[in-house]
Amino acid sequence: MKKLRYYFLLLNFIKKGAYPTREVLLEYLQGYDIEISERTLYRAIKELKTDFGVEVKLDVKRKGYFIPLRYLDETNMVLNCITSLVLNDVLANSQKERVAVSPYIEFEDKVGVVPIELIQVLFQAMIKNYKTTIKYHSQYSNSVEEHLISPLFFKQHHGVWFLVGKEGRDLKCFEMERVVEVIKSKERFKENIERIRAHYSEIIGLHLAQTELQTIVLSFDKYYKNYLESIPLHHSQELTMEEDGARFKVNLKVRPNEDLKQIILRFGKSVKVEQPMALREEIIGELRRAIEVHV
């Protein structure tokens, strides 16, 4: 786990763009009780490329290290994926040794634990466009199934990490904690990943929607304001207090889908759909059907 710590610290520090020198990097790690040699530092930088697909380069003129722009997406994914693992280790050992915890907690999202050895294989497959066979423990059949997929990217939802991939013509999401094994094949794939990623960024949750991108306005009881500020429903979320101060509005720019409806229903009487009217009618219909079940 020590190796993951300095992977995390190195990426997070170099990503800031200050072109740290070799000496600065070693001194920075020492500040967090990590003593490594120059040789180990060079090996770590090399392993970031081979194991995670993130290239760290030396700028000869500035005599410092940097991450090229084309690797920033991979860098962010690596940091997100290993944050919880590093944090858990730091907290577990904080009673035994002096450890500065704060630099390990820089993400607002609450991330779930991801099997790091599988992440390494999947990153390499994603970057080099190799199809992979994953052995997946299905919660429905309670058995291990094999899926040959084109691994595209990772998506976080409710603190759980999912692998988004294409199996045949179908886009599917696999919960990473249920992936038992990953086998990289020699078969290549070609997909418009940015288009697929953009579509996922316009929804809440995991269920793709064929609906139009719309402005959703929800009215909440004021007591949920702090909660929704700390855990936004979507990255497009905007909050405004109503004039009487008893309620506040949440504006979202998303494609309505099943996940959005379930979130609205979860808040019960504390939320009201202001617009669009079609979504309000769908929620009313769901509530009526729920009443019929209990009558």
Rank of each mutant, 00 (worst) to 15 (best):
V60Q: 11
K155T: 03
Y227C: 02
S141I: 02
K186E: 15
Y200L: 05
V121R: 15
P103D: 05
R62H: 05
F267W: 07
I67W: 09
H157K: 13
K61H: 09
V101I: 15
F52D: 09
S141Q: 04
T21S: 14
I134L: 05
T215C: 04
I264S: 01
E146I: 04
L25T: 03
Q262T: 11
C81D: 14
I149N: 07
S37C: 02
E242R: 08
M126C: 08
A44N: 06
A278N: 12
L91A: 07
V101S: 04
F52G: 10
S143G: 06
L152P: 07
P232R: 00
L228V: 06
H147F: 10
L206G: 01
E74Y: 12
V271G: 00
F248M: 01
N88D: 14
I264E: 03
N251Q: 11
L213E: 05
P151Q: 01
K96L: 14
F52S: 07
G268D: 03
T21A: 06
E74L: 08
D73R: 13
R39K: 15
W161Y: 08
L233P: 06
D170T: 13
L29N: 05
V99S: 13
E191I: 01
L252V: 01
Q156L: 10
L10W: 11
L252G: 03
L85K: 08
L41Q: 00
T211F: 06
V99M: 11
K49L: 12
K61S: 05
